[in-house]
């Protein structure tokens, strides 16, 4: 069963705060998956497994940069959902349970996608609230300026919390079923997941950094050095 009431409250609050960090305040990137999923994992008693879930999600987040008014996945609240689901059954271990990890990543992707939609709705909501107050703004009312700001921040906090609650409510029973029925070996499962995440990250680096000379050559050179070093270490 989903850990309701007191267990759930801090997680929803965490999701709310991290959702707020994405755009509204303070954009310190505590909402990046590598931090957010680790925090969620720590809440569940498995920070190391949370970090591993966060690493997979961070690879995906590299592809979706938060450019201006565009719609992009919201990884803050989503990583709390992914981190919590992904560390189920880890019990303090260094690596997540394979089935939980897969469902955790899927839950985070789905929540991030819904989160992107919810951010657009949030912006529309503030616009709806601002429209009848444009005259007050044009008259230089400090009260209106501050109230719009506070309203926007509060609505975003609630959006993040609601999104986290929704994500956990939907993903929790699915993860319970998936963990119990998972048959594929741990190494094979992790292999598929890492293959996908690493490929997304590599393609993101290729696409994002292509605008500058030499970057692609540096990336390939680094890849060769990294692969060799890992090979030697192995």
């Amino acid at each position: 069963m989903l850990p309701f009431t007191l267990d759930l409250l801090p997680l929803v609050l965490l999701g709310a705060v991290l959702g707020l960090d994405v755009v509204s305040f303070p954009q310190a990137m505590i909402s990046r998956p590598i931090v957010a999923a680790t925090l969620a994992g720590a809440f569940a008693g498995s920070p190391a497994a949370g970090l591993v879930v966060g690493v997979a999600l961070e690879c995906l987040a590299l592809e979706t940069l938060p450019f201006g008014a565009s719609r992009y996945p919201e990884w803050g609240s989503a990583s709390v959902v992914g981190g919590l689901i992904g560390t189920r059954g880890a019990d303090g271990a260094l690596l997540p349970d394979p089935g939980a990890w897969v469902i955790g990543v899927m839950a985070a992707i789905a929540t991030a996608w819904v989160g992107g939609w919810s951010m657009v709705q949030h912006r529309k909501l503030i616009a709806r609230w601002a429209r009848p107050r444009l005259e007050e703004l044009a008259a230089g009312s400090m009260r209106t300026v501050v109230s719009l700001q506070v309203y926007g921040l509060t609505a975003d906090l609630l959006r993040g919390g609601g999104l986290t609650l929704l994500g956990l409510t939907v993903a929790w029973p699915i993860s319970t079923w998936a963990i119990a029925s998972w048959r594929l070996g741990a190494l094979e499962t992790r292999g598929v997941l890492i293959l996908g995440a690493a490929a997304v990250a590599a393609s993101a680096v290729w696409k994002v950094l292509h605008g500058y000379s030499v970057t692609r050559r540096l990336f390939v050179a680094g890849l060769a050095v990294g692969t060799m070093l890992v090979g030697f270490r192995g």
Binding site: V52, V55, A56, C59, L95, A186, L187, R190, G191, I194, A197, A198, A201, A202, V205, L209, V214, T215, R216, L218, F219, V220, A221, G222, L223, A224, V225, G226, T227, L229, V230, R233, G234
Partner: peptide, 18 residues
């Protein structure tokens, strides 16, 4: 970042696999 990416990805993938 491009150079770090090249080095980081094999190391991170290796650790995440086990």
């Amino acid at each position: 970042a491009a150079l770090v990416a090249g080095i980081a990805l094999p190391f991170a993938a290796n650790r995440a696999i086990g």
